[in-house]
């Protein structure tokens, strides 16, 4: 009966049965309707294309001397229309990790929400957090689970960053990328970008970014890269000085953990970058 399967357990008994320490596995077994990206069976491929759901665009991630920085523009598009101009696509997922999302925004946000609860659930039940590789593999599993939806056009491409508290500080900042099948790739070169403007952002980072840079320089490089992406990709939003909408930037270091950089800090950097570009539109 479809009715009974679409209800989470009510009494405590169902929760007391011995089970996996993964929240996702528990939800899959007991309340599958809560999982992201469930598509009806028997649809023609890419039949979701004309639903006009919003897409997230450009995310950049940069390793620096104390950890890693991730930043994203604020635009979501639906075809040629700007669906939202202040969407947030960077999420702090636990004390030492964050995820940026590109692709089908609705499913991606649900996926990150589930991922965040899963990390916290593991930490609470086991008393210790997952290892960095454990977290990134978990996310790979979630992306793989979404393959059915991806074939209908709802592709989700997360970009995972984290600080590996067990590694030596110089190598603790990590970037992990994914493809639609759940393939998981470590980026050891120290920078990466996903989304429609990623080609331009990556070209920009390739020229300006160094992994031994300090935090301030790295935040600036991230903003420069997003500016370059917005310059050449119509789906990526540039800094909106009139509405005061600026990129979301999260830094992860051993000392502070994952911290969203304050609006004042980012505004100052953005205004400086825009002022310089006013003189030299191509940067440099």
């Amino acid at each position: 009966m479809p009715f009974s399967e679409s209800r989470p357990p009510t009494g405590l008994d169902a929760y007391l049965a011995p089970g996996p320490s993964s929240f996702t596995d528990f939800v899959t077994a007991n309340a599958p309707h809560l999982l992201p990206g469930r598509v009806p069976e028997g649809l023609a491929p890419r039949s979701g294309d004309d639903l006009g759901v919003p897409h997230g665009t450009t995310i950049v991630a940069l390793v620096f001397n104390e950890g890693v920085v991730i930043a994203g523009d604020r635009r979501a598009t639906s075809g040629n229309v700007i669906a939202q101009r202040d969407i947030e696509k960077i999420f702090i997922t636990d004390g030492y990790s964050a995820v940026g999302i590109a692709g089908s925004a609705g499913i991606a946000i649900q996926m990150v929400r589930l991922f965040t609860v899963d990390l916290e659930h593991y930490e609470k039940t086991e008393g210790v957090p997952l290892s960095l590789d454990g977290k990134s593999n978990k996310l790979a599993g979630m992306v793989a689970q979404n393959l059915g939806a991806a074939m209908q056009g709802f592709v989700v491409v997360p970009l995972f960053v984290g600080y590996d508290t067990e590694a030596e500080p110089a190598k603790a900042g990590r970037i992990v990328t994914y493809d639609a099948t759940g393939g998981r790739y470590d980026e050891w070169l120290g920078y990466h970008s996903v989304g429609s403007g990623s080609v331009f952002a990556k070209s920009s980072l390739k020229k300006i970014h160094k992994t031994d840079a300090d935090l301030a320089t790295t935040v600036r490089n991230a903003i420069e890269a997003l500016y370059d992406a917005a310059d050449d990709d119509s789906a990526t939003g540039g800094p909106d000085l009139t509405r005061r909408i600026y990129p979301v930037v999260v830094s992860i270091t051993g000392a502070e953990g994952a911290v969203r950089r304050s609006e004042e800090e980012i505004e100052a950097v953005v205004r400086d970058v825009v002022a310089r570009r006013t003189e030299h539109p191509d940067g440099g």
Binding site: L12, Y15, V27, A31, R113, H121, K124
Partner: peptide, 17 residues
Amino acid sequence: DNLRTGGIRMADVRGYS
């Protein structure tokens, strides 16, 4: 410990849904 784990599951499922 089993009651604790069950409580965490219940709270997390509720907060998630």
